[in-house]
Design a protein around this nucleic acid. Structure first.
Length: 271
DNA sequence: CGGACAACCTGGCGGC
DNA sequence: TGCCGCCAGGTTGTCC
C-alpha cells in the first residue's frame, strides 16, 4: 500500500499529535510485528521516552526518541492513528500494537495483513542505513541518477523498486514515473541515453510530488491518520488502468508481469 | 550481480 | 448465497 507519498502523508498527519509526547505504556497484540529486539526489551526501553521528532526515510516512519529511534514500516496494510482510549473505529479490528501517550490518548498501529514491522534501535541508521537516496532531496540530481545507473545492469522497473537503489518508489509510482518518462518498463538500464535519464529523473520527482499533492493513493488499505482516503488514485495515468485509454495517445493500457509485479504501461508511447 | 520464487498474511472481489 | 481462486501500494531469504 504505502509508498513515499502515502508515508509522507502519514507523518504529516501525526506530527502535531505526537511530537513532544512521552510514551507511557505499550500493548503488543501481535508480537511478530516487533523486529530488531525482543518484546520485553522493546517495552522496557520504550516506556518513558519522549518523541522528539517524526520523520520519513524511504517508506519508513522514524520516531526520534529521547535515547533511541522507533521505526515503523507499514508494508501493505498498515495504518497509524491517534485516538482517545474509549473511542472505537473500524480499523481497530486489526490493531497489532498500541502506544499509550502522556496526554491520555493512544497511537494505534493497525495492520490487517500482519506484514508491518516495528523496530527499536539506538540509531535509525541501523535500520535504514542501506537505503538508496531520497528521490525528493536536493542531492538527488539528474547527474546523481546517471551516476547510480552507470554501475548497473538489469531491467529498469525492477531497479526502481529496489530500495537500496532509490528509496520510496513502489509499484504505483514506478509505473506512473515510467509513463511520464515515456520509457518501457522492460528496458535494460544500460541502454538509457542521457536525455532519457534526465526525463526519468524529472518523471520520478513529478510522480511523487503529484502523489503528495493529492494526498496519496487509496486503492484499498491506505488512509490518512484522520481516516480519510487520499485522492491520487483518481489521477493515475496507467496504474490499475488495464485496457483503458492512455491519456497521451489513446492506446489501451497494457498489463504485464515484470519481476513478479503487475506492470502497467502504454505500448505505443513508452519506448 | 541478477532473476525466479517462496514466504510472510488477510481481505475483497469476480466468477461460477 | 456460497465457495474458490486470484489479486493486492512490500520486503527478505534462498537457490541457480
Amino acid at each position: 500500500m504505502p509508498e513515499l507519498p502515502e508515508v509522507e502523508m502519514v507523518i504529516r498527519g501525526l506530527r502535531d499529535d505526537l511530537v513532544g509526547r512521552t510514551i507511557n505504556g505499550i500493548a503488543i497484540h501481535w508480537p511478530r510485528e516487533i523486529w530488531s529486539i525482543g518484546t520485553d526489551e522493546f517495552i522496557d526501553r520504550l516506556i518513558g521516552q519522549k518523541i522528539e521528532g517524526l520523520r520519513r526515510r524511504g517508506k519508513y516512519i522514524i520516531f526520534d526518541l529521547s535515547y533511541d529511534a522507533l521505526l515503523i514500516h507499514l508494508k501493505m496494510s498498515g495504518r497509524l492513528y491517534v485516538a482517545e482510549p474509549e473511542t472505537v473505529v473500524s480499523d481497530d479490528r486489526w490493531i497489532r500494537v498500541t502506544f499509550q501517550l502522556d496526554d491520555g490518548r493512544e497511537l494505534r498501529f493497525s495492520d490487517a495483513r500482519k506484514f508491518g514491522r516495528v523496530y527499536l534501535a539506538g540509531s535509525a541508521e541501523e535500520i535504514v542505513g542501506k537505503l538508496g537516496p531520497e528521490p525528493l532531496d536536493e542531492e538527488f540530481t539528474p547527474d546523481k541518477l546517471h551516476e547510480l545507473l552507470n554501475n548497473r545492469q538489469g531491467t529498469l522497473k525492477p531497479l526502481l523498486l529496489n530500495q537500496a537503489f532509490l528509496a520510496g518508489v513502489g509499484n504505483i509510482y514506478a509505473d506512473e514515473a515510467l509513463w511520464r518518462a515515456k520509457l518501457d518498463p522492460r528496458r535494460k538500464v544500460n541502454t538509457l541515453n542521457p536525455e532519457e535519464i534526465h526525463n526519468l529523473h524529472h518523471a520520478i520527482q513529478e510522480s511523487l510530488l503529484s502523489g503528495i499533492q493529492h494526498e496519496g493513493s487509496t486503492i484499498s488499505w491506505y488512509r490518512k491518520p484522520d481516516g480519510t482516503p487520499g485522492g491520487y488514485q483518481n489521477h493515475f495515468n496507467v496504474y490499475d488502468r488495464e485496457n483503458e485509454p492512455c491519456p497521451r495517445c489513446g492506446t489501451p493500457i497494457t498489463k504485464i508481469w515484470l519481476g513478479q509485479r503487475g506492470t502497467h504501461f502504454c505500448s505505443n508511447c513508452q519506448k
